[in-house]
Design a protein around this nucleic acid. Structure first.
Lengths: 187, 187
DNA sequence: ATATTGATTGACTAATCACTCTATATACAG
DNA sequence: CTGTATATAGAGTGATTAGTCAATCAATAT
């Protein structure tokens, strides 16, 4: 599956830069070093590629983040670390993170089945449920907490990509944002 | 400028539903009740229409919100009211709010000149500067505060549109979110 | 009356693009 | 070997679409 991987990589780079509309499938194939026909051998339609790429990235993030959700540790610690790791992933995989947002505000997002979305957010939800059960988080709906947490990640990501700064400053902003969001959501 | 207004309205409805790519200019013209040629009489290119629509909406929001930035009142009050009014505008103008997000994560956004963006966010920045000067807000950069505030608005908007609820529940969520974000950012 | 300007139309075009099709190559099972 | 399935190539196609253009129409000025 070497070629498929190349197609994913090329598609991500091009979609992130030019958008779905701005990148012809022919260009993706070219950039990936495969023929037009090969692309459509692996993905029946352009839409299928868009969704498959979205799911691939989501699974990557999910796997990367779920490693540290140790239930032995103090909730505050796990919570903050999750937030911080999310942001490091976002800045290190800027294209992918941006692509996810693109899909979210596009008509393609409706093509992602609800159960797939549920699966992709399961570990986060479980952590929030744990926090609620322990009385560590303010009593609010899981969805609301999840959404506020996510949007704070998006916000800080946006700030970091829009404003140049040193690695040290970046680290400090991320740490501060983690403290802020914890302060906002903790019981 | 009756026709131009109709074009704006049709474009917004179609872009919000089908995305930029999914809506041909011919469809916009048709829906607006004007001819193909007329659309290109008012907007030289499709891209120009996309940007013009974006700026129009931004100015609408800006005007709607800047009305209440009374410097006589207590900062906390003005700050929270701004947040709350932003959210009411967002849910009442869901298409427009969604469209803004679409533009933000599209290649078109780079076509908006930096000084136009500055002008569109001026009143918000001024309010934040006032809060910092009064010592009402935590000492952080204006940009960071602005971004965190905006992303909280986006987050709550997303939550409200994704989860059906009564008007009363909605009001409560908005009020609670205002308290939360104030609690997070106040000194 | 006449000229000038801008608004409006809709048929037309040149280009693009998603996707197909046929042909060839490769792998590998019996 | 032979047969079958899968991978790859790349030219080709039919449909779509952004944008043009030449022709009217309306309004206002001269």
């Amino acid at each position: 599956m070497e070629k498929q991987e190349q197609i994913y990589r090329a598609a991500l780079a091009l979609f992130a830069q030019y958008g779905f509309h701005g990148t012809p499938t022919s260009r993706i194939a070219q950039e990936a070093g495969v023929s037009n026909g090969t692309l459509f051998h692996y993905f029946k339609t352009k839409e299928e590629l868009i969704i498959a790429l979205y799911n691939k990235i989501k699974n990557d993030i999910s796997q990367y983040l779920s490693a540290d959700m140790n239930p032995e540790e103090k909730f505050e610690l796990v919570f903050k670390r999750l937030f911080i790791k999310s942001l490091y992933w976002a800045v290190d995989n800027s294209q992918a993170f941006f692509y996810i947002q693109q899909v979210h505000v596009s008509p393609h997002y409706e093509q992602v089945p609800a159960d797939v979305i549920m699966e992709q957010t399961r570990s986060h939800r479980q952590l929030i449920e744990r926090g609620l059960a322990e009385g560590a988080l303010k009593p609010m709906s899981v969805e609301l907490i999840y959404t506020l947490l996510s949007s704070q990640v998006f916000g800080v990501y946006q700030f970091l990509t829009a404003n140049e700064q040193t690695e040290a400053d970046q680290k400090q902003v991320i740490q501060q944002a983690a403290d802020l969001v914890w302060h906002m959501l903790k019981a």
